[in-house]
Computed example of a mutant assay.
Amino acid sequence: MSHPLLRASLLLSLSLPFAAQAHKAWLEPSKTVLGVNQWVTVDAAASTDPFVKDHNPQRLDSLEITAPDGSRLTPENPVTGKLRSSFDLQLAQAGTYRIALVSNGLSASWEENGQRKMWPPRGQPFSAEGFAKEVPAKADQLKVLASQRRVETFVTAGKPSEGALKPSGVGLELQPISGVNDLYTDEPARFRFLLDGKPVAGLKVELIADGVRYRNAVNEIERTTGADGSFELRWPQPGLYWLSATVVDQQAPAPASERRAVYSATLEVLTP
């Protein structure tokens, strides 16, 4: 009979180390509104403040690029350096593209001979084989956490479209109501958060504008979703914004007893 933890972990794909979640993960496109056949370059990293390249790159093995017609695309010129990863994408189709890092995994902690053990070790990724080998099925004070993470940005060539924005129904997701690449400082924007495809009420949402390095304060913008999972934003200035939200609940597959669903997105606000 196979290891019970292995059976569960085989249902989960590769995940970044959970320690990395202490930093803000982000994707930064060179532009979000372009013409058909133009190119966009995207940086991917994690840092103390959004868009400041001072910590770690994001690995691109969990990258998903969805074209306006719903098909999956492969990035060009992918590279990972010391502080960031980057790739290029040609927008051959008209419409809106979803660019996302999507990962799921397990982490565990337990007591062994009076010492606290953790897996995966800091700085190492989740793997089903490693989880089954290193985490005892029965251990003192064993706690297993399931993690779901989605880091996104959106770019549009020509006229916006909705084909790539269809929710997957897994984990925490952002659903645009008033658009995602036609955001302007003089217009309010509405979004909805979904958890496993259903609106999530009472969720705290945080936004941070680019340029924290040059301000005396972070100046976070905070919102809370309503009964239908929606919230409204008015933009104080043009530029890039990092949006994030987190849900912790007990809706986790065995052997996990708790789930942590993390979402972040980069949005660009323009001057009308």
Rank of each mutant, 00 (worst) to 15 (best):
R215M: 02
D210C: 00
A217L: 04
W242G: 09
N219F: 11
V247D: 04
G226K: 09
I221W: 13
I208R: 06
L233H: 06
Y241S: 06
N216V: 08
D210R: 02
T246E: 14
G229K: 06
L243Q: 14
V218S: 01
R223A: 15
W235K: 06
Q250D: 15
I221F: 10
E232C: 07
P238F: 04
T246I: 07
N216M: 09
L243A: 12
F231M: 08
E232M: 08
V218L: 03
A245W: 12
A227T: 15
Q237T: 11
A227I: 10
W242R: 10
A209D: 01
S230Y: 02
L240C: 05
A217K: 04
N219G: 00
S230R: 03
L233E: 10
Q250W: 03
P236E: 08
W235Y: 03
G226A: 13
R215L: 00
D228S: 14
G229C: 08
L233F: 10
Q237Y: 07
T246Y: 04
E232Y: 05
L243W: 09
S244Q: 11
I208D: 05
L240D: 13
W242P: 07
W235A: 11
R223K: 14
V212A: 01
T224P: 08
L243G: 13
L243K: 12
A209S: 01
T246N: 10
T224E: 14
E220A: 02
A209P: 03
